[in-house]
Design a binder for these strands. Structure first.
Length: 924
RNA sequence: GGGUGCGUAGCUCAGCGGUAGAGCAUCGCCUUCACACGGCGGGGGUCACAGGUUCAAUCCCUGUCGCACCCA
């Protein structure tokens, strides 16, 4: 327990003692940090104190991030943990910088995904949605949503995400539905939404159209069937077509050959008979046919293949649909033309195909062709087969009437937003990908034959006339005016593509189409943080919709982060079973550790390889901070009101304040350019390698000394710098930092989140302090190295004598006698006088040479070897620098400051060489 | 086939014109009164390869090879 109860003793003689007792035993930090407890307590506190609330009336500048709404069916995976951690880090940082921050939460209704979940649950009860009917089914989905949906929002809280929860939206809630209708009606009236009958990617499993983006090509080992088609009027003559889909020949409308293919030139314009149906189809010349592939002649099935569809259009061919919505054979459109011809299949055979699946039909048809000897040969063949990204069914191109959005028209202003720099991608590289897709954008099929989603606000009259309106009353009014009488209307059965509503997210969540204060204050938002996988699905559409309806970009920056992979670089996936559950990591190591790990590993444009081990390693950093805090606490370090860093006079104090300022600059600069890795690592380095390894070590003798004035100053400085550390790390590790913020008396529990981001300061006269501390650090390091290399046990203290030391060097060494003693295991430091004792180790630091008498403890030969090695290294460097300076071209053409740097370097190297030689002479 | 990104220490990655860096791993020493989730120190790289530009190239340009991803 991190007991925070100040159970003050009653007044009395023992009061002072009790106060002391209470201080040490009741409010000391625990030996270890317990994340679970702190996280729960703090998150609840933040939420109840409305620490995440945005306030459009605040008068402050806004900083806004729209959450990429996770599917309402979703559970938190590593990808979420990554993107949400980055967003939260930015939001928390900007909040500290004094912005009115809005991180807009919400979830997506995710049409197909959610419908699938509920249908699966129904299947367990042996019910289909068709059994239930549309209304009951939708009610059932809503019920599911209320009970089990949105679990992800609870999980986001575990991560520490500072989302403004009371503003949570759902893509199908009332307000957003209103926005969807408004957009649909407007775009329809502008002619940018229309109905069209053309080929779509049809998912026979869901029995719905899907967009190009939802289709995934997969390389599949298939076959190429060579089928002979008899040429009409030329008995015995045939043309052989090669096909990967023999079952679609029922819908063939032509055979195409290349116009310049001499083999077939004479046949163009002739007719062939389809071996199965007896239907006569023409041989046409079309560039689509590739003479190099197969036989150079291809069958054309316009209603079941995208390329063939185009060929069909060019040659005015009939478009015969021979597969139904479940991809079963359907004969309605070809039955009338079945002809009984000698040598061809019997019409009865074809009639028996009705109702067969694609796969069964293929088998049956191939067998029949073989029996009738129309099949020439079969070759193995690898080809690309379109699959539904969700569900995995093989896509069947199908001729249907769907609603389309004229993305081509909307793309222009979206492209302009990026070319003009109103929107910047980070990394910039992604702009090319964006342009490539936007400039070749296809009409967007927005209707889906599902039940769960925004129902298309279109109504049809008895004659099929369409009325698009905000509601049925409005549609009825239009219809009454149109027909001059009251006719019964029926609403379109279809719903809109889920991305249609998420495309409106940046403004629909803010109350659009109403003119709300939120909309005025938070739009355009500042940055969108997301993965590259949804640039087309979502990012592009938000830009198009934002430009069209808000006449402004939806966000200024787009930070595109990589994918989370496992430690071996494999994509995390359910099927591979290599996923890691972020909640489990939070349980094991704490949210702070997970969040810090994510930031530390997020470089620009790189995937994040994340394993347990990494989180475990960075958890050590959380522990390190905790222990540093305990040390400070034990030494009486606590928040001091009115502390003025400019009043600090000790070199140690000035030095660490200057170092802290550098860390603040680095961290701030890194966050400004989305370098989460640099941000995390500069904090890490400052805390661990500067504050803990040096400052606290230097502080130990001060705290232990009798000089209470100096000790008091260093205590105050320690508190001041530790406060900076906590504020610097709050965005990435909000829990442990807040806990410590309170422990040190900086503020009450939960208050760190709203503290000001630290500003770097310039300390007058800090340069001298920095030079002094850096010199002492070098001195100590050098002594440590020599001792370690000579295998001197740390228990063995030895004096250090300075040979040829300048006066100020000597003075410094004396001032830091105590620290050098502790940190380098030195008994005392003194100027070297007289002869160097036998058996001494030596090291060169600046103008001075350190002499460490260790007679009997070191091997003189080894020391000689060591010094020789050092000397060789120094001479090597001299040679390199010498060579450079000897090059006339270098001296003449290189920047003067570089030349000067080289000259300085040479002088230093030569000095070192001379001193090393002297050291060698002394011991040999 | 078109495009993009990447090849730097055993591993994961920074650096991107002026003497090669970090973390982890490894090796040695240390249970020193915040921390062994620790401290101190060491070893380890012709920066994929081949050309070119430059006084100077891991960094810029061209090509080759290898890996990954996207589009067709």
């Amino acid at each position: 327990m991190c007991g925070r109860d100040y159970s003050f003793a009653k007044a009395g003689a023992a009061y002072a003692f009790r106060l002391f007792y209470v201080f040490w035993l009741d409010i000391m930090l625990n030996k270890t940090f317990e994340p679970a407890e702190t996280e729960k307590k703090l998150y609840e506190l933040w939420e109840s104190e409305k620490a995440f609330s945005a306030d459009p009336q605040s008068g402050k500048k806004s900083f806004t991030i729209m959450i990429p709404p996770p599917n309402v069916t979703g559970t938190l995976h590593m990808g979420h943990a990554l993107t949400m951690t980055l967003q939260d880090t930015l939001v928390r940082w900007k909040r500290m910088q004094g912005f009115d921050t809005l991180w807009q939460p919400g979830t997506d209704h995710a049409g197909i995904a959610t419908q699938m979940v509920v249908e699966r649950a129904l299947a367990a009860e042996n019910i289909t949605r068709q059994d239930m009917g549309r209304e009951a089914f939708i009610q059932r989905v809503w019920k599911w949503k209320e009970e089990s949906g949105g679990g992800i929002t609870r999980q986001l809280r575990r991560l520490g995400a500072s989302l403004d929860w009371p503003r949570e939206r759902f893509t199908m809630d009332e307000g957003l539905s209103r926005a969807v209708k408004e957009v649909f009606v407007t775009l329809f009236n502008e002619g940018l939404i229309y109905r069209d009958r053309r080929l779509v990617n049809w998912d026979p499993m869901f029995r719905s159209a899907i967009s190009d983006l939802e289709v995934e090509s997969k390389d599949v080992a298939g076959k190429l069937w060579y089928v002979r088609y008899p040429v009409e009027g030329k008995p015995g003559e045939t043309i052989t077509v090669a096909t990967t889909r023999p079952e679609t020949m029922l819908g063939d409308a032509a055979v195409a050959v290349h116009p310049e293919d001499e083999r077939y030139a004479a046949l163009v314009g002739q007719f062939v008979r389809l071996p199965l149906t007896g239907r006569l189809i023409p041989i046409v010349a079309d560039l689509h046919s590739d003479p190099e592939k197969g036989t150079g002649a291809v069958k054309i099935t316009p209603a079941h293949d995208f390329n063939d569809f185009e060929v069909g259009r060019r040659h005015n061919l009939p478009m015969l649909t021979i597969l139904d919505e479940q991809a079963r054979v359907i004969l309605d459109e070809i039955e009338d033309e079945l002809t009984s011809v000698e040598g061809l299949a019997d019409p009865a055979f074809v009639k028996n195909l009705a109702g067969l699946s694609r796969e069964e039909a293929r088998k049956t048809i191939v067998a029949e062709l073989e029996r009738l000897e129309w099949l020439e040969k079969i070759e193995p063949h690898r080809h690309q087969v379109p699959h539904a990204e969700r569900g995995g069914a093989v896509i069947e191109p199908r001729l249907t009437t769907q609603w389309y959005c004229d993305a081509g028209k909307l793309a222009g202003p979206a492209i302009e937003a990026v070319t003009s720099g109103k929107i910047s991608f980070v990394p910039k590289q992604w702009e090319n990908t964006f342009f490539a897709w936007m400039r070749d954008i296809q009409p967007w099929c927005i209707s889906r034959q599902l039940w769960w989603g925004h129902r298309i606000p279109a109504w049809y009259g008895p004659d099929g006339h369409v009325f698009v309106a905000h509601d049925d009353a409005d549609a009825q009014k239009q219809a009454d005016a149109h027909y001059g009488r009251t006719e019964v209307l029926s609403q379109d059965e279809d719903v809109l593509d889920t991305w249609f509503s998420s495309g409106l997210w940046p403004f629909s969540t803010l109350g659009w189409p109403d003119k709300t204060p939120e909309l005025a204050h938070y739009y355009p938002t500042d940055v969108l943080v997301t993965g590259f996988d949804i640039i087309f699905f979502w990012v592009a559409r938000m830009i198009m919709m934002g430009q069209h309806f808000m006449h402004d970009v939806p966000f200024r920056d787009i930070f595109i982060h990589g994918l989370v992979r496992d430690e071996r670089g494999q994509k995390m996936s359910k099927s591979k079973g290599n996923g890691i559950d972020p909640l489990e990591l939070i349980d094991a190591y704490g949210a702070d550790a997970l969040r810090f790990t994510i930031c530390a590993l997020t470089g620009i444009g790189r995937d994040v390889k994340l394993g347990r081990k990494k989180v475990e390693d960075y958890r050590a950093f959380v522990t390190k901070i905790w222990n540093a805090a305990r040390f400070c606490e034990m030494n009486g370090v606590k928040a001091q009101d009115g502390f003025d860093p400019q009043s600090v006079t000790s070199p140690l104090g000035q030095w660490i304040i200057a170092e802290a300022s550098t860390a603040i600059q680095e961290a701030t600069k890194a966050l400004e350019v989305y370098r989460f890795d640099d941000y995390a690592l500069s904090c890490y380095r400052f805390v661990w390698n500067c504050f803990c390894d040096w400052f606290l070590e230097f502080a130990k003798p001060v705290f232990a000394s009798d000089d209470t004035a100096e000790a008091a100053e260093i205590r105050a400085v320690a508190a001041y710098v530790f406060g900076i550390i906590l504020r610097l790390l709050q965005p990435v590790m909000p829990f442990v930092t807040d806990e410590l913020w309170t422990s040190f008396g900086f503020g009450k529990q939960g208050s760190l989140i709203s503290q000001a981001w630290p500003e770097p300061i310039v300390l007058a006269g800090a340069e001298a302090a920095q030079a002094e501390c850096n010199h002492i650090i070098r001195l100590i390091s050098e002594i440590r190295t020599v001792r370690a290399e000579m295998n001197v046990p740390p228990s063995q203290k030895a004096p250090v004598f300075l040979q040829d030391a300048a006066q100020h060097t000597m003075e410094r060494a004396e001032r830091w006698q105590e620290a050098i003693g502790r940190m380098a295991r030195v008994s005392h430091v003194a100027l070297q006088q007289g002869n160097v004792p036998r058996g001494s180790a030596q090291a060169v630091v600046g103008e001075a040479t350190l002499i460490i008498p260790l007679e009997g403890l070191i091997d003189i030969t080894a020391e000689e070897e060591r010094l020789k090695k050092e000397l060789a290294k120094a001479d090597d460097e001299i040679a390199k620098t010498d060579k450079k300076l000897g090059n006339e071209n270098f001296v003449a053409r290189a920047k003067p400051e570089i030349v000067q740097e080289m000259r300085d370097r040479l002088a230093a190297q030569q000095g070192e060489s001379i001193r090393l030689k002297a050291a060698l002479a002394r011991i040999s």
